[in-house]
Structure formats: C-alpha cells, structure tokens
Amino acid sequence: MSELWNWGFVLEILPRLLGGLVVTVEATLGGFVIAIVLGLLLALGRRSENPWISQPIGAIVEFIRSTPLLVQLFFFFFVLPRYGIRLPAFLVGTVALGLHYGTYTSEVYRAGIDAVDRGQWEAATALNFSPLRVWTGIILPQAIPPMYPALGNYLIGMFKESAQLLAITVTELMLTARVIGTETFRFLEPITMAGLLYFLISYPSALLVQRLEARYARRS
C-alpha cells in the first residue's frame, strides 16, 4: 500500500478531527456542569435525616456507580424514545455523562462536607443562622475549595470517557476518527491522532490538578 505515516493525510483530516474534539469538549463541559450540580444535590439528599429521602437516593447512587456508562448511554438513548421523549443524541449523551459522574462527585461532596469541623455547625447554631445560611455562608465555603483537585480529576476523566458517546452516534472525536478510518481505509493516522489529542489535553491538565492538590495539602 502507501507509506506508513502520511503527514499530508494528517493535515487533511486534522480540521475534521478538531471538529470532533470541539464536540467532545462541549459534551464534557456540559456533563461537568450537570455533574457538579447534581453531585451536591445527591450529597445533600444522602445526608438527609429523613430515610425516605436518603435511602432511595443512596440506592440510586450505588446502582449508577456499579453499572457501566456505556450501558447507561444505551439505556437512555434507546429507551427514552419509547416513552415519547425524542432528544438529540448529543443531549442524551451529555446528560447521561453528567448523571453518571454526578454520582462520583456526590461522594466527593460528602467527604468534603464531612471534613468540615463539627464545631462549625455548633457555632452556626449558637449564632442562630438560618439553615440555608449555615450551608451557603459557613459550611460550603469551607467544604468546597479542598474538593477542587478531586473535581478536577473527574473533569479530566469525563473528557476521556466522553469517547463512549460514539456508541450513541454523537460525532465526538473518537467517532470522527473511526468514521474517517472506515471512509478512507486508513486507520493509523486518525486513531493515533485522536489518541494524541486526548493525551495533549488530559496530561497537562492532570499536572495542573496535581499542583492544585499540593497547594491544598500544604494548607491543611
């Protein structure tokens, strides 16, 4: 056939790959926003004193964490239309990604909230703050900053795992690469470049998060 690695070909497909990368980033960021909001809600739910709230939420979180993201993607993508909900694949994928990782972030929130000294709750009660104010003014401002490294790591994880969205026809980076391969019969360049692009974004990000971790470790 032709040479082993064709740089010309790489240049040709790069714009398309980058287009896929944009979709990847969009899905990642959208999913991340969902995950950090949902994570807090799930964490608060699990901490509820009302077992009718905490037990079902705990069960749902455990269930989602124990099952693969891919199967959840299939589930939402194929099952929702059965009940009349027709959403674009991108949306389904992003929401499923956010839901899946929301269960992971909820564990981070729980650990972070539990790490706040018990005395802070007592002082807040003694000063008669409203429950909402206790959370927003005193507990969460102390709980959340130490969580940044863990959340950052999950963001990076979501970026990498977003490749699974190809299974439900979302035209992110990996699907784009595979499609180029099936169209041109050249898989080497597209798939290698895709892998490279994932690496070039996630590795430096991981280093940044490590620096964040060191900074918070020093403070405590």
């Binding site: 056939m1 082993l4 990498k160 795992e161 490749a163 699974q164 190809l166 990996m174 690469a177 595979r178 391969g181 898989f187 080497l188 798939i191 290698t192 895709a194 892998g195 994932y198 690496f199 996630s202 590795y203 991981a206």
Partner: peptide, 23 residues
C-alpha cells in the same frame, strides 16, 4: 502517563484497528 492520558476505549480501538496495520 500515556495509558492514563486517554480512555480504555481509545486504546481498545487503537489495538483493534491500528495494530494489525503496518508497521
């Protein structure tokens, strides 16, 4: 770092689609 830098799926695809090819 290389194997942590991308997801299992990417690596699976690479091994499945690219490894059979030259070189």
């Amino acid at each position: 770092e290389v194997f942590r830098g991308s997801s299992v799926l990417v690596q699976m695809f690479w091994i499945f689609f690219v490894l059979p090819l030259p070189p």
